[in-house]
Design a protein around this nucleic acid. Structure first.
Ligand SMILES: [Mn+2]
Ligand SMILES: [Mn+2]
Ligand SMILES: [Mn+2]
Ligand SMILES: [Mn+2]
Lengths: 150, 150
DNA sequence: GAGAATTGTTAGCACCATCTAACATATTGC
DNA sequence: GCAATATGTTAGATGGTGCTAACAATTCTC
């Protein structure tokens, strides 16, 4: 019968720590999807605007070198988001197209939200590009509601 | 004198692409700082709440294994954010403490903002943990203003 | 204070994301 | 159609972030 039961105190701490850990695990999962999301969104846009998505254009817009794009595209192909043939431009699979659509929608909601808060367009675009990957469905819904209500 | 000057068209595209590239480069830079930011913020909190920051507690709260923490702490020490001695707990340098303070402030502003939008506390905490690293000073100021005005 | 339990480190693996250099292929322009 | 240019791939390096297994040091408990 010591004053405070150390087991109990630890138990509370542990539960709090577990909650934290879950949050961080979620963030890590989101991080691991970020690059694929940016790629498919950009590929869809290039196909829409220019008729095709070429590695050189992807690289120019992402600000990385072409070999970096080649390697990442190989990964996306492995994951079933795109298809490609050597020396040819890139195509989205159905799955890739679905992801791209979802990412575009999310990107636009986040962007409109930031603009409706009064942020300048350039900063809004920059911040949206990072924030979009870390916004839950609930938060997205609130963003959309706020933006349309203002 | 061909119908549309292809050089001109390309020029416009190039400038737009450059802007995009800058945004993505900014996001990549933020990504490369994320982990260090989460670590120093958590270390400061552990020191404040428990008197010391031990790898085992850092690991429990981040949801990773202890050897992962060891390795990352080595990197943070290399970068001058923490100091440590073998088998001892972790200390922040002045630089680390300054970064931790800034991260904590930013984290709280983002969290309060999300809560003031009407998000439930658990989702707010999760989203804040990811969003915080991608919020510019301007956006942060707008978040803070919105949260206090509501 | 010795043995048990906990904590921390090291080594080694896997994967990702970036780069440069060198080479291969396609496209373009004359 | 060929030569020059542009584009794409491969190889190999660097560094980050995660893991498990094995071992070392510390701390706790009796
Ligand atoms: Mn993005
Ligand atoms: Mn985007
Ligand atoms: Mn965080
Ligand atoms: Mn945080």
């Amino acid at each position: 019968m010591t004053g405070i039961d150390p087991k109990n105190r630890m138990g509370t701490d542990d539960r709090a720590a577990d909650l934290r850990a879950e949050a961080f695990q979620g963030v890590r999962a989101a991080r691991s999807r970020e690059l694929a999301e940016d790629y498919v969104e950009l590929i869809a846009e290039l196909i829409h605007d220019h008729g095709e998505a070429r590695p050189v254009d992807i690289a120019a817009r992402l600000g990385v070198r072409v070999p970096t794009v080649t390697k990442t595209l190989d990964r996306l192909a492995r994951e079933g988001l795109i298809t490609r043939a050597r020396y040819r431009s890139v195509f989205l699979t159905d799955e890739g197209r679905a992801l791209a659509r979802e990412c575009r929608r999310r990107h636009e909601i986040v962007l409109r939200f930031l603009l409706s808060l009064g942020l300048d367009p350039e900063t809004a675009e920059r911040d949206a590009e990072g924030i979009e990957h870390h916004v839950s469905a609930r938060t997205l819904a609130l963003f959309a509601a706020f933006a349309s209500k203002s």
